[in-house]
Structure formats: structure tokens, C-alpha cells
């Protein structure tokens, strides 16, 4: 579904990615691991063309370099940015409606109800401003909003950041379930390697703007270097 080859990306004159290669197949959960500053967030931003890129990014066989962010979103890529990017001045419900902005079918209401059932906390706060939610609630809202677009590919940027361990667990359980029941393809960038590898099929390790290691989740879990650097034992 997503093929990235020799990806270079830069913020102004400063190049951050120097050749990143990976691919995500339909129905997979793929995780990208890496330390701070390795270029994980930049990789996701590059996929959505939020920064200047070189190299090839193919989505469903079509090159998407140089397209606008809006257009890529309309092709079924939902991005949950780091820091969540919720629309703080809008109510929870309006956030979800904005998530479904690109949809033309009549099942938007049904989907809102579905995510309200999945995340009951959001239902309780449906008329509150998103800015008044707690960090965990905002993360749920960001995920639910991304899923409102019925994406083909979900990009998650550090969904565990700043959340209590219990919330992180339930969130990742949700991701695993969506992948299994709905066949949702997910690319997740995480520092919390343990939990990310639990739900992932395959993983990549990013170091200083380059992919240095790849394998199935199990292979990586048992790789000595990965274990020392990211799993902490």
C-alpha cells in the first residue's frame, strides 16, 4: 500500500532524513522505532508532504511527492500528529464531524455513535471544547477523528506520549482490534517499543535519518541491539 524509497527530507536548508526505505502492506501494522531526533516524526510529515522531500513515496502504486497535504488526506491517509492536533476551539462532536469532512456517504452519524461507544469518555464530553479535555481524552479524540474519515492508512505519531500507562494499553488494544476486525492498515511511530511491538507485524529502526534495521516484530524483539537500545533489558 505504501512504498517509500530513498526518502530525503529537509526543514529549510537542514536535511533531516538521508535515505529512508520502508513499505507497509495492506492490513499490516508497521512500527517505526527510533530515539529522539532520529527522524520518526519527520518521516510521517514527509509522507503527508508537509515538508520538502526527495526520493519516492508511493501510495497504492501512485507517486505522491509534490501533492498537497489536503489531497493526500483525501486519498485516505489519516495522520494523528504528535501533540494530537485537535481543533481546540471546536466541540468534541464538531471535531469528529470535521474528521468526516471528506466523506459524502450518509453514515457519518452512525460512525460518530460507534466511536462514542468505543470511547465513552468522548460521549460524556461531546459538547465541550476539545481544548478543555485532558491529554488522554484528546488523544482518543484525535484517533477517533482520524478514523472518522474511514482511512485506508492510519499514521500515528507517538500515540503514547504523555499518557498514563493504563490509557496507553487500552489505546493500543483498540489499535490492534481495529486492525484485526476492520483490516485497518496502521503505520505507528513510537518510542515505547515494548507495547508497539506487541501489536505490530513488522518493524523498522530509524537512526540519524536512515533506516538501519528491519524485520518482523518478533525478530526485532529478540535482536540484541534493539533490546538494549529500545526495550531496556
Amino acid at each position: 500500500m505504501l512504498h517509500v524509497d530513498g526518502l530525503h527530507a529537509s526543514y529549510g536548508p537542514i536535511e533531516v532524513l538521508h535515505g529512508v526505505d520502508f513499505h507497509v502492506d495492506v492490513g499490516e501494522v508497521v512500527v517505526i522505532l527510533g530515539a529522539n531526533g532520529a527522524g520518526k516524526t519527520t518521516t510521517l510529515r514527509a509522507i503527508c508532504q508537509m515538508i520538502d522531500t526527495k526520493g519516492s513515496i508511493q501510495l497504492g502504486g501512485e507517486t505522491i511527492n509534490g501533492r498537497s497535504t489536503t489531497e493526500i488526506a483525501r486519498r485516505g491517509v489519516a495522520h494523528v500528529p504528535q501533540g494530537r492536533g485537535t481543533l481546540t476551539d471546536l466541540s468534541v462532536e464538531d471535531n469528529l464531524l470535521a474528521g468526516a469532512y471528506t466523506r459524502k456517504d450518509g453514515e457519518v452519524r452512525a460512525d460518530i455513535d460507534r466511536w462514542f461507544t468505543t470511547f465513552p469518555r468522548l460521549q460524556e464530553r461531546r459538547d465541550q471544547h476539545a481544548g478543555s479535555l485532558s491529554g488522554g481524552e484528546q488523544q482518543m479524540l484525535a484517533v477517533a477523528r482520524a478514523l472518522m474519515s474511514r482511512p485506508k492508512l492510519l499514521l500515528l505519531d507517538e500515540p503514547s506520549l504523555g499518557l498514563a500507562p493504563l490509557i496507553v494499553k487500552s489505546l493500543f488494544a483498540q489499535f490492534a482490534q481495529m486492525n484485526q476486525t476492520d483490516g485497518l492498515t496502521i503505520l505507528v511511530v513510537e518510542q515505547n517499543a515494548n507495547i508497539a511491538l506487541d501489536i505490530a507485524h513488522r518493524a523498522y529502526v530509524l537512526e540519524a535519518g536512515q533506516t538501519v534495521l528491519t524485520g518482523t516484530a518478533d525478530e526485532l524483539r529478540h535482536d540484541d541491539a534493539v533490546r538494549k537500545a529500545y526495550l531496556g533489558y
Binding site: S68, A73, P81, G85, T86, L87, R145, S149
Partner: peptide, 12 residues
Amino acid sequence: SNSLESSELLGI
């Protein structure tokens, strides 16, 4: 008017 970047990501 709330966030340009988030709106782009939503396909607006």
C-alpha cells in the same frame, strides 16, 4: 481558523 495544519491533514 482554528488550525491550518490540522485542517490540511483532515483533507479540507
